[in-house]
Simulated scan of single mutants.
Amino acid sequence: MTSVETASDLPIVRSVADLRAVVRDWRRQGLSVGFVPTMGALHEGHLTLVREAGCRADRVVASVFVNPTQFAPHEDLGKYPRQEARDAELLAGAGCALLFAPTVDEMYPEASVTTISVGSATAGGPAQGLEGQFRPQMFGGVALVVAKLLNQVQADVAVFGEKDYQQLMVVRRMALDLDIPTQIVGSPTERDGYGLALSSRNAYLTDAEREIARRLNGVLAEAGAAASSKRPLPAVEKDAYSALLKAGFERVDYVAIRRADDLEPFANGIVDAPARILAAAWLGKTRLIDNMAV
């Protein structure tokens, strides 16, 4: 028997078997299925993804799962905000039809040993460098949990935010390499009225830090314009790095301009194809990432 809970008029399932039972019933009715994976603490950016999935499919499943395999021991797994009841209410309002909220034991049963690596230092691939350098734990964990979720839901389409652009590239490459039939769609980054990319971690910012954080978007826009004018990229990246520090960021992990389709560096040091500028910088204990098209 399928076990389905209800919160804010949104059905919730916690096991893969129950998830598949609901999706199987939709399939019998000839309905298409969309999927939005999240780690919860939802904001308008997540809800935009749900609405986009709803435009592309008859029914939308969202997952809320704080995935331990993508956090290093020193990162904020234990402090990551969890608010399932509020998340369910927001999802229901955005048109979500089902919330999948599994436990860690459900996602990673005892004796699970499989890992996924999307590329390597030798083979290359979108997981190399940038976030892959500063958070080497992350993309293996992301690839594993997303592969599992896509297999569990078996949706026609899954929607991911472009704010985590490198993650989107990793997921696309993984789905292609593993012959996962779900269409992977990227949705543009949602921003506040000052241009700050919406993120669950923004809740950690003080008012003063938030004012500084809102300068990140402007620095990237200026650097992107310089790169588009064929200015040598090492100089553009160096100037943007300095501009972030001058704006008040305490530490900058990287500012990089890469090819948009595969995140490879431009071989000749100037932009000669669609590009993306990506950055990661710190304010207090909060690490902000952002990117935009060049």
Rank of each mutant, 00 (worst) to 15 (best):
P73W: 04
A88R: 09
P102T: 02
T38M: 10
A57V: 01
R82Q: 14
A57I: 02
A92W: 13
S32R: 10
V22K: 11
P109W: 11
V36R: 08
D87Y: 06
M107P: 04
R24G: 15
T38W: 08
V33R: 11
D76P: 07
D18E: 07
D18K: 08
V36T: 04
E75C: 11
I116L: 15
V33A: 06
F100T: 01
N67V: 02
L98M: 01
E52Y: 00
E52K: 15
A85Y: 10
R24Y: 02
M107Y: 05
G54D: 07
A92F: 09
A121G: 02
G119P: 11
L98T: 05
V118E: 07
N67G: 09
L98E: 03
L91C: 04
D87C: 12
C55N: 15
V113P: 03
A53M: 05
Q83I: 01
G93D: 12
V33P: 00
G119T: 06
A62Y: 04
R59E: 03
V23G: 09
P37H: 09
R20E: 12
R86H: 11
V23S: 07
L99S: 01
V64K: 00
P68N: 12
A101N: 14
D87N: 12
A88M: 07
T114H: 06
V113Y: 12
G40Y: 00
G34E: 08
E44K: 10
A21S: 15
A101K: 07
T115Q: 14
T48P: 09
V50S: 00
T48G: 13
R20P: 01
T114F: 03
L31E: 11
T115D: 12
A53Y: 02
A94R: 05
G95K: 04
G93W: 11
L91P: 04
G45I: 02
A88K: 08
V118Y: 02
A97Q: 12
G119C: 06
P81K: 05
R82S: 10
P37L: 11
Q83S: 15
L90R: 15
T69P: 10
D58E: 06
E106A: 11
D25P: 04
L90E: 12
G30M: 02
V60Q: 09
S112L: 11
A57L: 05
V22S: 07
S112W: 09
D18C: 04
